[in-house]
């Protein structure tokens, strides 16, 4: 773990993928892991299934007073690769780390200075039958990828929180995050 006191994260998803819940769970996990304060900020409007959704998370070693939107996140957690087809989203990604759900290699190019990780979270969810209303739920798998890419949270804390939160379905969610942890890898930008 680095010595930074504050980490800011932007979670991008589509309505129905569990991005807002995933953001809150990630905050819970960071708190369980010993961060002093967190704030999970869902940006809620008139969204519905499929619409691009955004949520912010701050995790901190200090008490947090801010409630404003995260403008320059340390990490992007992108639950759906197709969100990068929006220019306004792709263009905001600079000098940061992105963790992206993709199966066949991310087809979008980031500017230099961006560190990218990829994880086949949708594939993991489908393989594990982790679905709600026919849609694969990738949020907890993405948290596993976040753990691997950042080293900020531990797998056992993910387990504790998701089992506590989902009850019976928690084990399956945890399995998804452990699998994602295993499969997350850094993308070589010049590949």
């Amino acid at each position: 773990m680095t010595s930074k006191e504050l980490y800011e994260i932007t979670v991008l998803s589509r309505g129905g993928q569990g991005g807002i819940l995933g953001n809150k769970l990630l905050g819970k996990i960071a708190f369980v892991d010993g961060f002093k304060d967190i704030i999970a900020i869902p940006i809620i409007g008139a969204e519905r299934r499929g619409a691009p959704i955004r949520a912010y998370l701050r995790i901190s070693e200090q008490k947090l007073r801010r409630i404003d939107a995260v403008k320059e996140p340390d990490y992007y957690l992108i639950l759906d690769e197709t969100l990068l087809s929006y220019d306004y989203i792709l263009s905001e990604i600079k000098d940061t780390t992105v963790i992206i759900n993709t199966e066949n290699g991310c087809s979008y190019k980031f500017p230099p200075g961006v560190i990218a990780y990829e994880v086949p979270a949708t594939r993991i969810a489908i393989d594990l039958d982790l679905e709600v209303a026919g849609q694969p739920i990738v949020n907890v798998a993405m948290i596993g990828a976040f753990a691997k890419a950042t080293g900020l949270i531990k797998l056992e804390s993910i387990k504790k929180v998701v089992v506590d939160y989902f009850g019976a379905k928690g084990e399956l969610n945890y399995e998804a995050s452990a699998k994602a942890f295993e499969l997350t890898r850094e993308v070589k930008q010049d590949e």
Partner: peptide, 12 residues
């Protein structure tokens, strides 16, 4: 307290 800014954000 603030709608959404506090009502829907999560904190310890």
């Amino acid at each position: 307290y603030g709608g959404f800014s506090q009502s829907h954000t999560s904190k310890p």
